[in-house]
Amino acid sequence: MGRRRKGRDVHGWLVVDKPAGITSSAVVNKVRWAFDAKKAGHAGTLDPDATGVLAVALGEATKTVPYVTDADKHYRFRIAWGAETSTDDAAGEVVRTSEQRPDDQALADALPAFRGTIEQIPPQVSAVKVDGARAYDLARDGEVVELQSRPLHVASLEVVASDEDGAELAMTCGKGGYVRAIARDLGRALGCLGHVAWLRREWSGPFRVEEGVSLETLEAEARSPALDARLLPMELGLASLPELPCAMGDASRIANGNPGDVIRGVDYGAEAWASDHGRPVAIGIYRAGQLHPTRVFRF
Rank of each mutant, 00 (worst) to 15 (best):
V179A: 08
G237E: 09
D276L: 12
C192R: 00
G284M: 02
R253P: 02
N258Y: 13
A251M: 04
G191A: 05
G265I: 09
G289C: 11
Y286A: 11
V213F: 08
R201V: 10
G289D: 13
A222Q: 07
A272K: 12
R201Q: 07
R201K: 10
G237N: 06
V266C: 08
P242L: 04
H195N: 06
W273S: 00
A189Q: 01
D185K: 01
G176H: 05
A226E: 13
R184L: 08
S214I: 08
R208D: 12
A247D: 10
A229P: 05
L232K: 13
W203K: 11
G278S: 11
F207V: 05
A272R: 10
P280R: 03
S224C: 03
I182C: 08
A251I: 02
H277F: 09
L186M: 07
Y286W: 15
C173M: 14
A220H: 09
T217N: 14
W198L: 05
E235Y: 00
G194Q: 07
A220S: 13
L190A: 01
L244F: 09
P242N: 07
F207R: 04
P206C: 13
R188F: 06
R287T: 11
L291T: 01
I283G: 01
L218R: 14
L238K: 04
K175E: 09
A189N: 01
N256R: 12
A274G: 04
R287E: 13
S275T: 15
N258P: 04
G284K: 01
T217H: 12
P242S: 10
L186D: 00
A181E: 00
A288W: 08
V213Y: 06
N256V: 07
G191K: 03
A189L: 01
H292M: 12
G205L: 12
W273P: 04
E219Q: 15
Y178N: 02
G177A: 14
D276S: 14
G191F: 01
